[in-house]
Simulated assay, not measured.
Amino acid sequence: MSGSRAMREREADVMRLLLVEDDDSLAAEIIADLQGRGYEVYRAETGAEGLEMARKIQFDLLVVDRMLPELDGLSVLETLRQEEYTVPVLVLSALSAVGDRVSGLKAGGDDYLTKPFAMEELAARLEALLRRPMHGRSSTLRVGPLEMDLIERHAQRDGRDIELLPREFRLLEYMMRRPNMVLTRTMLLEDVWNYRFIPQTNLVDVHIGKLRRKVDAPGEEPLIESIRGVGFRLRVPD
């Protein structure tokens, strides 16, 4: 898995984008441009890796190359749409014939951009996709007393609003998708922070501490547990 975004904390809300592209040179150019425009960009190099990441992480946009190793882009797209995945997807391809564009859209693409292209056009098309209304998207997670709106980026516990910073939101989302599962620090650093090489850091512990104080208010049954020597768990009450 290749995380191409900056490793620093971002406390402003940003759009998370997954780029599935096997061409290193083109991927680097796209990533540099989109990061400069404020996107938080993740990269997958194969279709299989892109499919796995799309299932695991909540993205706002996907940019998927049509010709990919292991699993081609249209197969990735068709699989996601069959699973009722409604995040907007822009298909990239060197194939420019009308039939090729039509097949890309029929597979579930929201837009189709042929190579070569200007970065300004890519950015404009992505902005247009973000402005489109989203219909039928499964936008709510519910785990025990917790409820999370993935579109509005809002969380509640038994109707009590939980004010979360972007990183805290992602951390809680990750835990809510894996209730009662013991999550190691390595898992959290790799999947929430997208670190490829795990540093010696107390970053996870600090954020879990802050999140616990917001989720488990005084007098409420604790939901976030520390598993000594292993990691953490979001416990669902019986």
Results as ranks from 00 to 15, higher is better:
2 S>N: 12
6 A>Q: 14
7 M>K: 09
10 R>E: 15
15 M>N: 11
17 L>G: 05
19 L>Y: 10
21 E>Y: 12
26 L>I: 15
27 A>Y: 01
30 I>G: 06
32 A>N: 12
42 Y>L: 13
42 Y>S: 14
42 Y>R: 13
44 A>L: 10
47 G>T: 01
51 L>G: 13
51 L>E: 07
51 L>K: 00
51 L>T: 08
53 M>Q: 14
55 R>A: 15
56 K>M: 07
58 Q>M: 06
58 Q>E: 11
58 Q>D: 15
61 L>I: 09
63 V>G: 04
64 V>W: 03
66 R>Y: 12
67 M>S: 12
70 E>V: 10
71 L>T: 12
75 S>R: 15
75 S>D: 15
76 V>K: 03
80 L>V: 03
81 R>H: 09
82 Q>S: 15
87 V>E: 12
88 P>Y: 03
92 L>G: 07
92 L>Q: 10
92 L>F: 15
93 S>C: 09
94 A>T: 15
95 L>Y: 14
96 S>C: 10
97 A>C: 02
98 V>K: 13
99 G>M: 11
99 G>L: 01
103 S>P: 03
106 K>F: 02
110 D>W: 09
111 D>R: 08
113 L>T: 09
113 L>Q: 07
113 L>W: 02
116 P>C: 06
116 P>M: 09
116 P>W: 08
121 E>V: 13
122 L>I: 08
123 A>V: 14
124 A>F: 12
125 R>L: 05
126 L>P: 03
127 E>R: 09
128 A>T: 14
129 L>C: 11
129 L>V: 06
135 H>T: 08
138 S>N: 10
138 S>H: 08
140 T>P: 02
140 T>I: 06
140 T>D: 05
141 L>K: 02
141 L>D: 01
142 R>F: 00
144 G>H: 02
144 G>M: 06
148 M>C: 04
148 M>V: 06
150 L>E: 03
153 R>E: 13
153 R>K: 11
156 Q>G: 05
157 R>V: 00
157 R>C: 04
164 L>D: 00
164 L>V: 02
166 P>S: 09
166 P>D: 03
167 R>S: 07
168 E>Q: 15
169 F>Y: 06
172 L>Y: 02
172 L>Q: 07
175 M>G: 01
179 P>A: 01
181 M>Q: 07
183 L>I: 06
185 R>M: 05
186 T>Y: 00
187 M>Y: 01
189 L>D: 00
192 V>F: 00
193 W>C: 00
193 W>E: 01
194 N>C: 13
194 N>I: 03
197 F>W: 00
197 F>N: 00
198 I>C: 08
199 P>L: 00
199 P>H: 00
200 Q>C: 04
200 Q>D: 07
202 N>K: 14
209 G>T: 03
209 G>I: 04
210 K>H: 10
212 R>P: 01
212 R>A: 13
214 K>V: 09
221 E>L: 04
224 I>P: 04
225 E>Y: 10
226 S>A: 12
226 S>M: 10
231 G>H: 02
233 R>G: 06
236 V>T: 14
236 V>A: 13
238 D>A: 13
